[in-house]
Amino acid sequence: MSAPLSQAAIFRPRSGLLARLIDWIIRHPRMFVFLMVLPITLWLGIVYIGALLALLLQSFFAIDEFSGVIVHEFTLKTYGELLRPYNLDIILRTVCMAGAVTLAAAVLAFPIAYFAARYAKGKWKALFYIGVMLPLWSSYLVKVYAWKLVLAKEGILNWVFAKLHLTWLLEAVLAIPVIGGNSLSVSYLGTFLVFLYIWLPYMIIPVQAALERVSQDLTEAAADLGATPRQSFRLVLFPLALPGVVAGSIFTFSLTLGDYIVPQIVGNSRLFIGQAVYTQQGTAGNIPLAAAFTVVPIVIMGIYLWGARKMGAFDAL
């Protein structure tokens, strides 16, 4: 049977406008993909991007200091309030915490991901994925409140330090200015530990995926040329895995930057950006200032994503 006859036998034309339209869509893969993506694109564009644009518009309004009513006139006064020392401290505190969590997550995730990429095989690799993903299966609030109990002055961590006769060490750490406090549960150090635990899986997976693509022959070739293990890591392995690290940092940095639940439960009374948005929108009723605070992480992440794209991070997602 010739090719045209065989195709005719397989794709018999159907009667009816709807049937012909379906046949035409199937024969044009690009149109088929476009129609499949169109609903979610419309939803994203109308609901998500539309909400962001409305929020951005609100940030150019201001609130009347006497009446508390929003004045719907274009002004940059609200953005000027972000430069006040109190609000600027909130922004710097949040960015520093996000940067510290991201850096620590990268340091911890790299050896774990390297072991999984190089040595874990078969059931051990499956066990690795289960171990990494298992914390993500439990409730976010349950994990945070569990850490609140662990880090409390009467918690299990203090009990372990007491049993090891290392209470003096914990007290010395808590006595450090800025990061310390009465206990880990009301300190920046405790907030940092909880952030690190919650977002660490989002760093491990991209780094492991990037290391999987690095051929072991490259490190072996570097060793054959006389490179030490440290030189092989610094000059071969780490540069090739760096896009995965940057990709993971997108998750850890952005999620820490916008989180308001962890600092609300674990930490002292000083606000982060997420808490400032929640407070200004709810308790204070200052919607323009809340919107301006929301624009800050959007701008920061926009710059961060631009730099990550330049480093090829999206290739490791």
Rank of each mutant, 00 (worst) to 15 (best):
R84W: 11
F60V: 14
V69K: 13
P13C: 00
I112E: 04
V101R: 07
M31W: 12
L44H: 04
A98L: 06
I22M: 12
G45R: 05
D64G: 06
E73W: 05
V47D: 14
I70A: 11
L56P: 03
L56N: 14
R12Q: 10
S15W: 13
M36A: 09
P13A: 00
A19R: 03
L56W: 11
W24N: 11
R84Q: 15
A54S: 08
W24F: 11
L55Q: 09
L76A: 15
S67H: 09
L17A: 15
I40C: 06
A9L: 08
T102K: 06
I46W: 13
P13G: 00
F11A: 10
L56R: 12
L103P: 01
T75C: 09
R93I: 14
L35C: 02
H72P: 00
L18R: 10
A104C: 09
G99K: 00
V69Y: 06
Y86E: 15
R93M: 12
A105P: 10
E81F: 06
G50P: 02
P29V: 03
I63E: 09
M97T: 02
Q58T: 08
T75G: 06
R27M: 07
D64I: 10
R20P: 02
V37K: 02
I90E: 03
L21G: 11
V95G: 07
I25E: 10
L18T: 13
Y79H: 11
P111N: 09
I90W: 02
Y79D: 01
L55E: 09
Y48H: 05
V107R: 06
L83A: 15
I25P: 06
E81P: 04
V71P: 00
A62K: 10
T75I: 08
A62L: 00
S15R: 15
R12D: 01
L55N: 15
L17V: 13
L42K: 01
R12F: 00
T41W: 07
A113M: 05
L44K: 00
L44T: 05
L35G: 01
I26E: 10
W24G: 09
F66L: 14
Y114V: 07
A113K: 06
V69E: 11
T102Y: 06
R30F: 14
F34A: 15
F60K: 04
I90N: 02
M97L: 13
W43Y: 12
L57H: 13
L108C: 08
S59D: 05
G50D: 02
